[in-house]
């Protein structure tokens, strides 16, 4: 048997199902191969979906109907994006009249929510987390911490109807600043992240400032808060992204102040073509993807929960 015959025999022998299974099993390779293939398959399917949607958003109606699986044949219609961008609008009733809210106002409403809600919420959370983590001598801070744990881990949720009633009673319904206030609870999910962050800052910095006559507020505002700017940045971006793509909250609580997310969502129920609708969705996703590309290290940074056993 020459070298080539021997090589061929070995290869055939290796790939024979019975031997292959035995070899893979013996080397403990089945698990990584199967799971890695599953992961790769998931990514390929998702990527294919995104690519198909992107190319479809550049098609003419004719191409989309007659060549749904191919690349744009007639022309690459980048104007779908420009059109979708300029024509995004939502119909609302104001003072008994039906009016179209255009792109400018949609963008303004979105930005007011996306910037206002995180700013209010994070500042309030920072205030609470700081005193709760650093002023434990006061009973109220220990009580507040227990309340936060209860709120975050016990499944109690008021009905949506109650939320609407209370917002209307307080005059916060259909007001953007009303959303800033409603969303700025200090005991939410971000509390524990800020709490851990403030705890990890050495107290000696504050002590040096106290010795120099700084007030509690100065220590918080000028020393402690700037030291958590990394956390603030990551949480602000996360919250900004959530607000930007949230179409439900404006629909429920801000009926006459629609946002760009609501307009993009509504495209599927209007008489627009599918490529045009997909272009609208990409426009909505674009700022978020740009933010993600710029800050992906911060956003995908380390975050643990639950801890390790033992």
């Amino acid at each position: 048997m020459n070298v080539f015959q021997k090589f061929g025999h070995d290869v055939r022998n290796f790939f024979e199902p019975k031997n292959l299974k035995r070899r893979l099993k013996a080397r403990g390779k089945i698990f990584p191969i199967v799971t890695y293939t599953l992961l790769a398959l998931w990514v390929v399917i998702f990527l294919a979906m995104l690519i198909w949607v992107f190319f479809t958003s550049l098609k003419t109606d004719y191409d989309f109907i007659y060549y749904p699986l191919s690349l744009p044949k007639q022309e690459w219609l980048w104007s779908n994006y420009a059109d979708a961008f300029s024509q995004l609008s939502v119909e609302v009733t104001r003072g008994g009249k039906l009016i179209q809210v255009g792109l400018g106002e949609l963008l303004l409403n979105s930005l007011l929510l996306c910037v206002g809600v995180p700013l209010f919420a994070l500042f309030d959370v920072a205030c609470c987390a700081y005193v709760t983590s650093r002023y434990k001598r006061f009973k109220i801070t220990r009580v507040i911490f227990a309340v936060v744990i209860f709120v975050n881990y016990v499944p109690v949720t008021a009905s949506l109807a109650s939320g609407l009633r209370i917002m209307k009673t307080l005059g916060l319904y259909d007001q953007i600043w009303g959303q800033w206030i409603a969303a700025s609870g200090g005991f939410g999910a971000f509390f524990l992240i800020y709490y851990a962050n403030f705890k990890s800052i050495p107290w000696s910095y504050a002590e040096a400032a106290f010795v120099d006559g700084a007030s509690h507020f100065t220590v918080f505002w000028r020393i402690m808060l700037p030291m958590t700017r990394g956390t603030f940045g990551a949480l602000f971006i996360t919250s900004f992204i959530t607000q930007w793509t949230d179409y439900m909250t404006p629909m429920i609580y801000l009926p006459t102040h629609p946002t760009i997310a609501q307009a993009a969502w509504g495209l599927q129920f209007s008489n627009t073509s599918v490529p045009y609708m997909l272009a609208g969705l990409f426009i909505l996703a674009m700022p978020v993807l740009i933010l993600f590309c710029c800050f992906h290290k911060k956003l995908m940074g380390s975050m643990t929960m639950g801890g390790l056993k033992g």
Binding site: V131, Y135, I140, T141, I144, F220
Partner: peptide, 9 residues
């Protein structure tokens, strides 16, 4: 200070 910081929340 603690009361002021927690009041709103």
């Amino acid at each position: 200070f603690v009361i002021c910081m927690l009041a709103y929340a």
